[in-house]
Design a protein around this nucleic acid. Structure first.
Lengths: 131, 131
DNA sequence: AGTTGACCTTCCTGCTACTGGAAGGAAAAT
DNA sequence: ATTTTCCTTCCAGTAGCAGGAAGGTCAACT
């Protein structure tokens, strides 16, 4: 199966798939004459794995490690959980910060009249006049 | 005032300040002989404005527009509110997505025993066996 | 056979908002 | 005079791709 078909099957762009190949996340067979990549069902499974891992915000490096564990029958689930827990902490931290930012900005937006007059609590806050 | 002092006064790195100069967010006077940048109190105010706007996750482009409005006495607060509302929507969307991801990952992590055995609900989910 | 169109390849650039570091001039301190 | 510290510009790297150029390949149609 060529890369275009693999793209359709997985929902990943051909650009993304080539990028994963460059980063050695997968290594599909190559036609020795044309250089065309040839994807097996196993390759597709790995691509779908990568897609879901990326959707969960795992980095490429994380994905690489997870994929290795996935292909390693004698793995310890602890190793997987360690990676996932770390990512979970990151997501927690990001989510908290984002919620905080959102609330701050929401307050400012609500207080701004949004008319043709120049007075603006948002600019005031940015200028630090009340902080 | 030279860039190092401006850095101390604002808490922005000299690298960041130079970057803002390159992007024309501020244009401090230049010593015609040495090329050294010279910052006024007005420049510092703009830098502090930029710092807070960036903390609120406004892009450089947004910051540029906000700074223009800030320096424009006859502005309409509507223009500011429009930019801020758009950013607020972005933050909302990001926060929602992040919370969703976090919850998904949290469930998986909780279900993973994290021991020496190979069975792992996290890998199972990434492999798509239950989705 | 020739040609069109749809594939495929590699390589280079750009995106965001910086950070780190090299090479070299300038000013202050010793 | 020399060392240290500060300043300058420029180049590379970060994460994860997307866009596009230049060129090879393959099946189909005339």
């Amino acid at each position: 199966m060529l890369i275009g078909e693999a793209s359709k099957q997985t929902g990943l762009s051909t650009k993304t798939i080539r990028f994963y190949c460059d980063r050695d996340l997968i290594a599909p067979r190559r036609d020795p004459f044309t250089g065309y990549r040839s994807f097996t069902e196993n390759d597709l499974a790995k691509l779908r794995f990568l897609k879901k891992a990326r959707q969960l915000d795992f980095s490429i490096k994380d994905c690489s490690e997870l994929l290795i564990l996935y292909n390693q029958p004698d793995r310890a689930s602890l190793d997987v959980k360690t990676i996932a827990s770390k990512k979970l902490e990151e997501l927690d931290a990001k989510a908290n910060e984002l919620n905080s930012l959102r609330n701050q900005l929401k307050l400012l937006v609500e207080r701004c009249s949004g008319d043709h007059l120049p007075d603006c609590p948002i600019l005031d806050a940015l200028a630090g006049e009340r902080n």
